[in-house]
Structure formats: C-alpha cells, structure tokens
Design a protein around this nucleic acid. Structure first.
Length: 116
DNA sequence: TAGGCCATCTGGTCCT
DNA sequence: AGGACCAGATGGCCTA
C-alpha cells in the first residue's frame, strides 16, 4: 500500500541520515577540538575540517620549500610559532605546553557567512 | 522564553 | 518502478 511504502521510505531516509551522522562523528574524531568541552556541531565540524586542511596544506607547502633541510624542529620553532597565526576567537587559552593549538588551526565561528 | 542544534517526516527530483 | 538525494516543515531538547 501507499502507507506501507511511505513508512519504508521514512526508514530508508532515517538510515541514510544516520549514516551521514556516523560520518560526521568520524570526522569529529580527527578534527582538532582543543579546549572544547562539548562536541562540535555539524557546521562547526565542517568549518574546523576546512581550516585544519588549510593549515596542514600550508605546513606541507612550507615543508616542501624546506625540502632538503634536515632539522625539522628548527623549522617548526621558526615558522609555526604562536604569533604567526590568527588568534582563536572563542577558545580559552589554557595550559600553553601545546605548540599546535587553536591558534594554529583556528576555526572562527563568527566570520563565516552561512549564505551567499 | 528565544535561539541553536538536531531528528524525523514528507514530497519532489534525479538516477538505476 | 523503486531507491538515493535533497530541502522544507515541524517538534523536542538544551542553554543563556
């Protein structure tokens, strides 16, 4: 019947969205979360993934420029220091033993326009 | 209580 | 035809 097909379609859609959400969870686990007590929203997860990828891409580009260099830590200290990157808007800057913190992979919730 | 985030239902569109 | 994908509507839950 029609009602039966509707229910089946609802169940498929539910499963589809659940698959999407497990994908979001897997993404949350590999995206930086420093100083975030609660889990990132879907939108925040995507934005953080974007800035994370950008930052890593940037690091790769730097590494390529210094391709023949041997001492990685000197590169790290020289070029990825805290003040070379945008300040992290919302995060509390606790404990500063962390060289790669929010300042490096900063996601800024505000400046991104939702629509264009 | 308003706003943010979310899950679900639903009908439309496109693909197989 | 039937499934996948999508966006709009709706209601629940939580927090400032």
């Amino acid at each position: 019947s029609a009602a039966r097909r509707r229910l089946a379609a609802n169940a498929r859609e539910r499963r589809r969205m659940q698959g999407l959400n497990t994908a979001f969870d897997r993404l949350r686990r590999v995206v930086p979360q420093w100083g975030q007590d609660k889990k990132l929203s879907k939108y925040e997860t995507l934005q953080m993934a974007l800035s994370y990828i950008m930052a890593l891409t940037r690091i790769l580009a730097e590494a390529e420029r210094f391709g023949s260099e041997r001492d990685w830590s000197s590169l790290h200290c020289e070029h990825f220091g805290r003040d070379h990157y945008l300040a992290f808007a919302g995060a509390k800057l606790q404990g500063d033993g962390e060289p790669y913190g929010p300042r490096l992979f900063g996601f800024q919730p505000e400046p991104f326009p939702m629509a264009s």
